[in-house]
Design a protein around this nucleic acid. Structure first.
Length: 819
RNA sequence: GCGAAAGUGGCGGAAUGGCAGACGCGCUAGACUUAGGAUCUAGUGGGUUAUACCCGUGGGGGUUCAAGUCCCCCCUUUCGCACCA
């Protein structure tokens, strides 16, 4: 209390409370930052730019839980550090607000989705502001703003113009309960990603985006970006490039050929039958030749009605039907081989048909075994009476004419050459990546800005008529037919053709919510531009995003989609860089206290509002960073957060032991330099937990010493500021440091002062540590040896023994082997 | 099945091949208190015949003066993909 009075006298002002009270100081600083626009990014400075990005949230009805801010806090720490380092930082925030949950909620509660969205955004904004993130709120927008989705539509029209958006009648994944078409990526374990409901196949005319046209570049350019390795690996696997050959098989007694893709052309001599996918057009083409067409048609019917789940998960046992009367000619052996249809061959990959080499492919082997088809060994090295021999590393070609004696690798090359010479095949690369189903039969999404005219076909809505706004209507329930709710709104659907003026109809499907998130980071650079989606000047200044952190769950969807759009815009000359994100990292999930995923249904959700109310935002932020390794999943702990509050209480009370001094004290000089170095480096490596631990250790050291100099306290406050911005600014101000930390500078350290002069060197004898000796860091080996000889407990292991090996790693270890 | 990551005290977690368990939680004892779910001090991997020694990083081998860390084999868990020809 007396110290408190002392400070009051010193500052000549009334200090409201001597206790650390975040509920007072946090709103205070948040207000100051807002009023002063402290964290607004500017374009008119000479400072180097830094663009830090987090995945903008989907504002759900539930509000934030403590998992969401982990990413925001981490990049907030980084953004604040960068500003102190002299960068002009862009750390923006917005809302990814189109989407199904809001629409479903709106339907259930009879509130317009726009209203629900606004309410949810307001709640999220309030929550995020209470955590003190240094977002540039002046650039906030929502993907649902017409001013924003106008440009989403505009980019779509560019894609349409360049032939990258096309309509296709394809079987899509149809969720029975959502009544919506799903992208392959939205089907998880055969069920709808959103509702968990049953997914079946349904033929529908869909807008597709030709992302496959960019497959090779999306793959190649991964080498040019700094993404954590597991993201790159997942994207590579998702793109799934595979090299091989396409080969045409003649259908015996017919003009038809069946084209197959194979990665193992070396095994062509062992192709003893063929399989076509049930959807393969050749079945209809050969209808007259197929003796059992009814049986085949029935099988096809059955296969096409199966959901993907049934077709994969449940169909462990292979099924299939021969196309009786149809034979293909093996171009190598010239023998006629049977043709089957089976749903283990997918129409959506390769050519929808395969040559089956049961001796060297596990799936073909299984099929051949079941249906008694011949198995011919063409690569020696395995035992094909037991299982398929699939190794490509060893094994020598046999029973293969001109390939006999070759290794697999050589045989592949020889065979492709031979196929190309004969004109019956060629080298070919295929990708697992599929085109992007871009249509959704829903209300709450960006309308696809196209009009269908009987005479002109699909015609884009002219640029000056964008955005095509969603009609403000009462009803937007899905239709049972699978049409979009918009289809029922006649006044909106019926329009005239922009080209010929005749009556025409609008496209009633809307875009998936991956659309708005594919380019939002571009809009942040110039969010109020009403002439362009963003000006080239601003894009040139801010791009690429320097550091983008987000969840692993977005690796193959959002991240790939946005790279695709960005590359497309780059090709159009509309963005300055071929890649949007320079660096990508990923955070681990925060689990509930029971170690399970946090969810309403599990009842283990922790709301940040409660934590802020009880402990304060700074405690929350410090705990989020301290609780565990940033990239790993960690359970929330009510006990853990208390420890962080205790830490900040101790930080607050450092004022009581603050003493004059423009320098570090001699006792703590090394530790100060070490801590400045460690915290700085740990933030860069995302080792936030050990950075906080180092700060805790430093505070412990201040208390052990019993005092902290003003210079020490100043640099400590700078170090902790990114983690705990409110308390550090408050202590800065209360203790008479100049200005605000926000306009101060990051710490510096001296490498030579960050190492101890005297070090304790452990002494190891026959592999066991027997003690330590205190020596100067750069002591000579003989001096250390002499010193350890003086230490009785150590020396007793050496005296009278023969030393056979001696290793000294300066400052690290002294190791002896004795007999 | 394929791919990736991980397995360390009672708990969350630290450790460029160099004293395993930093830091925090929890716990034990003590101090101060009318009180303590506040604060401070000391202790806290296990064992034992305790200032010392032995054993300890999922299991088993190996390399090394030295292994949680590197190599080989195995087990378990989590995540992603899943008949991709």
């Amino acid at each position: 209390m007396s110290l408190c009075g002392f400070r009051q006298a010193l500052e000549g002002s009334i200090v409201e409370s001597c206790n650390y009270d975040p509920s007072v100081i946090e709103p205070k600083w948040q207000r100051i930052w807002e009023e002063q626009g402290t964290f607004y990014a500017r374009e008119d400075t000479d400072k180097p730019k830094y663009y830090a990005l987090i995945e903008f949230p989907y504002p759900s009805g539930e509000g934030l839980h403590v998992g969401h801010p982990r990413s925001y806090t981490a990049l907030d720490v980084l953004a604040r550090k960068r500003r102190l380092e002299g960068y002009n930082v862009l750390y923006p925030i917005g809302w990814d607000a189109f989407g199904l949950p809001t629409e479903n909620y709106a339907i259930r509660n009879k509130v317009h989705p726009a209203k629900v969205t606004k309410k949810n955004i307001d709640r999220y904004r309030k929550q995020l502001k209470s955590l003190g993130f240094s977002f540039d709120w002046s650039r906030e927008f929502s993907t649902t703003d017409p001013d924003y989705y106008r440009w989403t539509q505009w980019i779509f029209l560019k894609l349409f113009e360049k032939g990258l958006a096309y309509k296709a009648e394809i079987p899509i994944n149809w969720c029975v309960s959502c009544k919506i078409g799903l992208a392959n990526e939205e089907v998880v374990g055969g069920a709808c990603e959103r509702c968990g409901g049953e997914v079946v196949r349904k033929i529908k005319s869909q807008w597709m985006l030709r992302i496959t046209a960019y497959a090779e570049r999306l793959l190649q350019d991964l080498d040019t970006v700094d993404y954590i390795e597991k993201v790159k690996i997942q994207q590579r696997n998702w793109i799934g490039r595979s090299e091989g050959a396409e080969v045409d098989f003649q259908v015996a007694g017919s003009e038809h050929t069946i084209r197959v893709f194979t990665t193992r052309p070396d095994t062509l001599f062992g192709a003893t039958y063929m399989v076509v996918s049930p959807e393969h057009p050749i079945i209809d083409e050969l209808r007259d030749q197929i003796e059992n067409f009814d049986e085949v048609a029935a099988y096809r019917e059955q296969a096409m009605n199966k959901s993907d789940f049934e077709r994969t998960e449940l169909a462990q046992e292979k099924t299939g039907v021969p196309l009786k009367g149809v034979f293909a000619v093996n171009p190598c052996t010239r023998s006629e081989i049977p043709v089957w249809t089976s749903d283990y061959v997918l129409m959506t990959y390769g050519t929808g048909a395969i040559m089956a080499v049961p001796a060297h492919d596990t799936r073909d082997y299984e099929f051949a075994q079941k249906f008694g088809l011949p198995i011919v060994e063409v690569i020696s090295g395995g035992d094909i009476s037991k299982e398929a021999y699939t190794s490509v590393d060893d094994g020598i070609l046999v029973n293969s004419g001109f390939l006999n004696g070759l290794t697999v690798k050589d045989a592949i090359e020889r065979m492709i050459d031979w196929l190309e010479e004969k004109g019956i095949g060629k080298r070919k690369v295929h990708y697992k990546l599929r085109d992007w189903v871009f249509s959704r039969q829903h209300y709450w999404g960006e309308p696809i800005p196209l009009v269908e005219c009987q005479d002109c076909g699909w015609v884009p809505v002219p640029e000056d008529q964008l955005p095509v706004e969603l009609p403000d209507v009462e009803h937007y329930e899905p239709t049972d037919t699978g049409e979009s709710p918009l289809a029922k709104i006649d006044w909106w659907v019926n329009t005239e053709c922009p080209r010929c003026g005749k009556p025409a109809k609008r496209e009633t499907d809307t875009m998936p919510n991956w659309a708005g998130s594919s380019w939002y980071f571009l809009r942040y650079t110039d969010p109020h531009n009403d002439r362009e989606f963003a000006s080239m000047d601003k894009l040139k200044y801010w791009l690429p995003v320097d550091w983008y952190n987000g969840g692993m769950e977005h690796t193959t969807l959002h991240l790939l989609y946005s790279r695709f759009w960005h590359k497309f815009l780059y090709d159009c000359g509309l963005v300055p860089t071929p890649e949007p994100y320079k660096k990508r990292t990923s955070h681990g999930m925060i689990l509930g206290e029971n170690n399970e995923k946090m969810s309403k249904s599990r009842g283990n959700v922790v709301n940040p509002d409660d934590i802020v109310a009880e402990y304060g935002a700074d405690t929350f932020r410090v705990y989020e960073m301290f609780m565990g390794a940033f990239d790993q999943a960690t359970p929330w702990s009510q006990h853990g957060i208390k420890g962080c509050r205790r830490f900040l209480d101790r930080v607050w009370r450092l004022q009581d032991i603050l003493v004059d001094g423009d320098e570090y004290s001699p006792e703590l000089e090394t530790l100060m330099h070490q801590t400045c170095k460690k915290v700085s480096e740990d933030i860069e490596r995302m080792k936030f937990n050990t950075a906080v631990a180092a700060l805790m250790s430093l505070v412990n050291a201040f208390y052990d010493r019993g005092e902290v100099t003003r210079a020490e306290f100043r640099d400590f406050l700078v170090l902790i500021n990114p983690f705990a911005p409110h308390i550090s600014e408050e202590l800065w101000e209360r203790n008479g440091y100049e200005g605000q930390i926000a306009s101060y500078k990051w710490v510096e350290w001296d490498e030579t002062k960050a190492v101890e002069d005297m070090v304790e060197v452990p002494v190891q004898i026959n592999g066991k540590i027997r003690g330590t000796v205190l020596v100067p860091r750069d002591a000579e080996q003989q001096d250390v040896r002499a010193k350890l000889q003086e230490d009785e407990t150590i020396a007793k292991f050496v005296t009278g023994k023969q030393v056979t090996k001696e290793v000294y790693v300066p400052g690290r270890i002294y190791s002896l082997v004795v007999k």
